[in-house]
Design a protein around this nucleic acid. Structure first.
Lengths: 148, 148
DNA sequence: AGTAGAATGAGAATGGTTATCATTCTAGAA
DNA sequence: TTCTAGAATGATAACCATTCTCATTCTACT
């Protein structure tokens, strides 16, 4: 990874594959995919993703399982993620672009991308057939809005 | 962690400590803090955070280093994070609350909290004294082996 | 062609988080 | 109060995505 340098063959291949994807991919999944395209070591995949990220070509978010998911910088997808089952639903609207522009033009920080994700419980997890973790009674301190 | 159950002493203590904090804390940091308050095993701290999260009392985001940072659900902090040095700057404005309400009232998903984070390069990392990773030439996409 | 610096691969090491399991606690029943 | 089933807890091993190490290969430039 270096200043004013053109991407390497591997970095280019990783970027190309990412740009074909419809949804974010983990580094490991990407590594497996590369076998049929441009086989390379796992470490190289991670390094390539780092370079691409530092150059504003790729973005990433972290799944609930702690896995980093990468996608092309041009994808502006956001999610509703269930804290219980971990399933993610895609949101079609992004209300943040304007703010990003504001930050951008205010100088002093160059914004490449942003993540916006909502967490909570999806319908099945919130109202399961059999009772499931949902309501909790908190006695003291601030909160006490149990009821779900 | 169980249905319609009051928080345990430990879970209560973890929540209380979190509510005193001004900024998000990692589970490990929290574990260290608890020693002076309500000593408990590291695993219990993680379990408590899970329960609190599933009940909408605590939120978390993941740092660039892959560490989960927890905070009270009432903190609505968002960040500008530098991809190069990892430093985070707090944003004072959150433009997303309205959308959260929309999702909330549209039914079918109960939103507890959201994360909003901008990534890019901070001033020092973007314009360092000595040249640093910044510019990259991409000749479109799948140019795997062109000239070079 | 020759050389310095960068990239790469393979595998070891790291470190936050989760799983395991024996023990302790809690809330309700008798 | 005592008894008991189910839940919570602690200590530690196991996991696993990611990073590091280092010897080797490539690349760009002279």
């Amino acid at each position: 990874m270096h200043p004013d340098r053109r991407l390497t063959r591997n970095q280019d291949a990783v970027l190309a594959v990412l740009q074909e994807q419809r949804s974010p991919l983990s580094a490991q999944a990407l590594y497996r995919l590369m076998r049929d395209r441009q086989p390379m070591g796992l470490a190289t995949v991670y390094r390539a993703l780092d370079v691409l990220k530092l150059n504003g070509l790729v973005q990433h978010r972290v799944s609930l399982e702690g896995e980093s998911l990468y996608s092309s910088i041009h994808q502006d997808l956001h999610y509703l993620t269930c804290l219980h089952c971990g399933q993610s639903f895609v949101l079609d609207h992004c209300p943040v672009e304007r703010l990003e522009d504001q930050i951008q033009t205010s100088g002093s920080f160059k914004v490449y991308y942003h993540t916006l994700e909502f967490f909570g419980l999806c319908e099945p997890c919130a109202h399961p057939a059999a009772p499931t973790p949902s309501t909790v009674h908190v006695d003291d301190e601030s909160t006490a809005d149990g009821e779900v």
